[in-house]
Amino acid sequence: QVLVIRIKIPNSGAVDWTVHSGPQLLFRDVLDVIGQVLPEATTTAFEYEDEDGDRITVRSDEEMKAMLSYYYSTVMEQQVNGQLIEPLQIFPRAC
C-alpha cells in the first residue's frame, strides 16, 4: 500500500513524499526526510491533525504507529465513500 506523506513547510507550501512501505515506516525515517526538506531546521518531532483538527505530536515509533493506523482508517472511509484519498499531512516541529 502506497502512502503519500505531505510535509508542510512553514510559510512556503508543502512537499509530497511517496512511501512504498508505509506500515513499516519508522519515526527516524520520517525525521531523515524532513531533514532533507528543511536542512536548516533541527526537527525533533512532527505533528498531524486528528479528526477533530487537534494537533497530535509524534516523537517515537509507538506514536508513529498510532498516527499510521489513524490515517489508514480514514483512508478506508474515504475509499468506501468514493472520495479522493488525501495525503497524510505532517507538520515538522523544531524543538
Rank of each mutant, 00 (worst) to 15 (best):
S21V: 10
Q78V: 07
L88I: 02
T57F: 06
E47Y: 08
A66I: 14
L88Y: 04
D54W: 05
I7Q: 01
P10D: 07
S12R: 14
T18I: 07
K65R: 11
K8Q: 12
P10F: 04
T44A: 09
H20I: 02
A66L: 13
V33K: 15
L3T: 07
Y70T: 07
A45H: 15
V2W: 04
L84R: 14
L68M: 12
G22V: 11
G22S: 11
V15T: 06
L68F: 06
E86D: 09
P39R: 03
W17K: 14
F27Q: 03
V4Q: 15
T18K: 12
A66C: 13
A94L: 09
P10C: 03
T42W: 05
A14Q: 09
E51L: 11
A94F: 15
Q78N: 13
T18D: 04
Q1K: 15
E47M: 04
E62F: 08
K65C: 05
L3I: 15
P39D: 10
G22D: 07
D61V: 00
V58S: 03
T42G: 09
Q24N: 07
L88P: 01
L25M: 05
G53E: 01
L38K: 05
L68A: 01
I7P: 01
L25E: 03
V33G: 06
C95F: 10
L68C: 03
V58H: 03
F27R: 02
D16R: 03
D32C: 06
F46N: 01
K65V: 07
M67Q: 02
M67C: 07
D50T: 12
Y71F: 03
L88M: 04
E40Q: 07
V4I: 15
V19M: 12
T42R: 14
S12C: 08
F27G: 00
T44M: 12
G82T: 08
L84C: 15
Q36A: 07
A45W: 06
T74R: 11
E63W: 00
V4L: 12
R6K: 05
D29G: 01
A14M: 07
I34A: 00
P39Y: 02
T42P: 06
A94N: 15
I9H: 12
A94T: 09
S73R: 12
W17C: 07
T44Q: 15
T74K: 10
K65P: 10
S21R: 11
A94I: 15
M76S: 12
S69K: 12
V19N: 03
V19D: 02
S69A: 13
E47W: 03
F91R: 03
I90Y: 00
T44S: 08
Q89P: 04
G22A: 12
L26R: 15
D52A: 14
R93N: 09
F91A: 02
A94R: 09
E51V: 12
A94V: 15
R59S: 10
E51G: 14
I9G: 10
E40K: 06
L3V: 08
N81T: 09
V33I: 11
E62L: 09
A14S: 14
V33N: 03
T43G: 06
I56L: 08
I56M: 05
V4A: 03
K8F: 06
V15Q: 06
L31C: 06
V58P: 00
V19I: 11
R59F: 10
S73Q: 10
Q89T: 15
L25K: 03
I90F: 05
M76Y: 12
P87W: 04
D54M: 14
L68P: 01
T57A: 14
E47N: 02
I34F: 08
V4T: 15
D54G: 13
Y70V: 08
V19P: 12
G53D: 01
D61C: 00
Q36E: 15
I90N: 00
A14P: 13
T44C: 08
V15A: 02
T43V: 13
V15C: 06
P87E: 01
F27D: 01
W17A: 12
I34M: 10
P92C: 02
E86C: 14
E77G: 12
V4N: 15
M67K: 02
T57I: 12
L31M: 09
Q89W: 09
K8I: 14
T74P: 03
A41Q: 15
T57Y: 05
E51T: 10
E62A: 12
L25I: 15
I5R: 00
A66Y: 09
V58G: 01
W17V: 07
D54F: 10
R59L: 04
Q24I: 06
T57V: 13
R59Y: 08
G53I: 00
S69L: 08
E51Q: 14
V37P: 00
A94C: 13
T18G: 04
V75Y: 09
Q78A: 13
A14D: 15
A14H: 15
T74N: 09
I5A: 01
D54L: 10
A66P: 14
V80R: 13
V58F: 00
I90R: 01
V2K: 12
D54H: 14
P87T: 00
P23K: 07
L38V: 09
R93C: 10
Q78C: 07
Y71R: 02
A41P: 12
N11K: 07
G35E: 15
D52R: 13
I56Y: 06
H20W: 05
M67A: 02
L26G: 12
A66Q: 14
Q1E: 15
Y70S: 12
I34G: 02
V2R: 12
L26M: 04
N11G: 13
R93V: 15
V75P: 02
G35Y: 05
H20E: 09
V30G: 00
W17R: 15
Y71A: 03
A41M: 12
F91K: 02
E63A: 06
V37E: 05
Q79A: 09
L84T: 13
E40S: 10
I85P: 07
D61G: 01
Y48S: 02
Y70A: 11
S69G: 10
